[in-house]
Amino acid sequence: MRRQLPLAITFITAFTLAVQYFIPHRTFEILYEVSQVWLQIVGAFAMVLGIVSLWQLHWGKARGRKPGWGYSIVTLVCLTAMIVFGFTGPTKLGEVGPGEWIGPFNWSYDNVLSPLSATMFALLAYFIASAAYRAFRARTALATILLLSAVIVMLGRVPLGDVISFGLFSKVANWLLYVPNVAAKRAIVIGVGLGVAAMSLKVMLGIERSYMGGE
């Protein structure tokens, strides 16, 4: 029963929702809309699992004075502060009147989360460049195509590229982006679509059961 009931629930919900797509009737539209809201609710409760797991990990590190425990305290303090700010102050910019302070929650997003996330991504520019230096050495024909394509797109996106090539680089860069790039992505997307469909059928029919865990 512990395994059969979940399998039955998966089959019934998956089959019903797959079939509803082909039945243009209001009842099935409502069924689809309700299922999406229910999915969001169940998913939101699952988020608590993640938060509790993270809290347990960092709390354990801080209590046991394990290496790096000070950083765990930083995470816990920031997490707690944001939760307190979220409960006590405005969380949407629409709740704040003109000229009023946006509150600590929105302030933290604007002045801490947003700029620091951008800085983290900016940091990746260096690592991408150093990885490219190692990976892009034109040893084979394939590596040469990769290198040439990347260099042309990079030069085609800055004014200097057009100056040195009399406008050619931006044209070739656009062609590379709209023809080979789209073709490669399209083939990958078609493969992903077929893979998801096959996987969905396996889950629906109970062939793939790994989501139920061990036991």
Binding site: R2, R3, P6, I9, L17, A18, A197, V203, M212
Partner: peptide, 20 residues
């Protein structure tokens, strides 16, 4: 598992025709 089964069921049911 019951909640996960529901979550996975809805996800796969919706994904099958939409992805195709």
């Amino acid at each position: 598992r019951i909640a996960i089964a529901f979550y996975i069921g809805v996800g796969t049911g919706v994904a099958l025709p939409l992805y195709m």
